[in-house]
């Protein structure tokens, strides 16, 4: 059965993931509504990245169910369908170094959606303009700064017209002066109604943009709530401890 338009876009139920004997996710339940921006925070090793990597099957979950827009991931054809709807941005950008910026953005629409080169390039130029790097379209990734590369990566993911965007610590590998140019693009995206799940340590972004903050520790979702609730009046001791550590300065 497919979920109606009113149902959650993403539903994780009792999701388990093990790496050898290490339990990275211990029965995680998360729902994300259409248009919602969820920021996932937590100490390293808490399962934040694993959680979003299970949503597009970069990690295969060992238990529970992952459902995206009514498609539950059972086999590779489900996975292919989900991946067409889910865009992802990585900490290390992961652009294709042999291709120009433009080709990085047009590859997937041409190969997966079978767009013509003309169509794909029109879309790519529009998206590169939107993230402010149209003038770099014919350069190669290594000629760009980290911030520019990450904006290309965002454009590349958007070119597939995804229903949801996953961000896995998108600013953690950037020099400080480049963080804002990437966060600005993400804010813009949120303002236009994109559904987003963002793993980040940028608490300012969480406060300003998130509809909901999700705190993870030890492979579990410990606490979830609005940014106001979360930063001013957290319920759980572990949340308080984590916040006291990161918000001290």
């Amino acid at each position: 059965m497919t979920a109606g338009e009113g149902g959650p876009l993403i539903r994780l139920e009792g999701v388990e993931k093990k790496f050898g004997s290490f339990r990275a996710l211990r029965g995680v339940d998360v729902e994300v509504a259409r248009g919602e921006v969820v920021v996932v925070i937590g100490p390293s090793g808490s399962g934040k990245s694993t959680l979003i990597r299970c949503i597009n099957g970069l990690e295969k979950h060992d238990g529970g169910t992952v459902t995206v827009d009514g498609t539950t991931i059972h086999n590779t054809s489900d996975l292919a369908e989900v991946r067409r709807e889910v865009g992802m941005v990585f900490q290390q950008f992961n652009l294709f170094p042999e291709m120009t910026v433009l080709r990085n953005v047009t590859l997937a629409p041409m190969r997966v959606r079978h767009a013509t080169r003309k169509m794909a390039e029109d879309i790519a130029r529009r998206l590169l303009d939107r993230v402010g790097i149209l003038e770099q379209a014919n350069k190669y990734p290594e000629e760009l700064s980290g911030g520019q590369q990450q904006r290309v990566a965002i454009a590349r993911a958007l070119a597939m017209e995804p229903k949801v965007m996953l961000f896995d610590e998108p600013t953690s590998a950037l020099d400080p002066e480049m963080i804002n140019e990437v966060l600005d693009v993400m804010k813009d995206l949120a303002a236009q109604g994109m559904t987003m799940i963002v793993v980040t340590h940028e608490m300012g972004f969480a406060r300003e943009v998130a509809d909901r903050v999700l705190f993870m520790d030890g492979g579990r979702v410990v606490e979830t709530g609005t940014p106001e609730h979360f930063f001013q009046d957290p319920t759980e001791d572990r949340t308080k401890l984590f916040l006291s550590k990161i918000l001290r300065h």
Partner: peptide, 8 residues
Amino acid sequence: EAAASLGL
């Protein structure tokens, strides 16, 4: 991984 996440 990036290519896989794009659906290739």
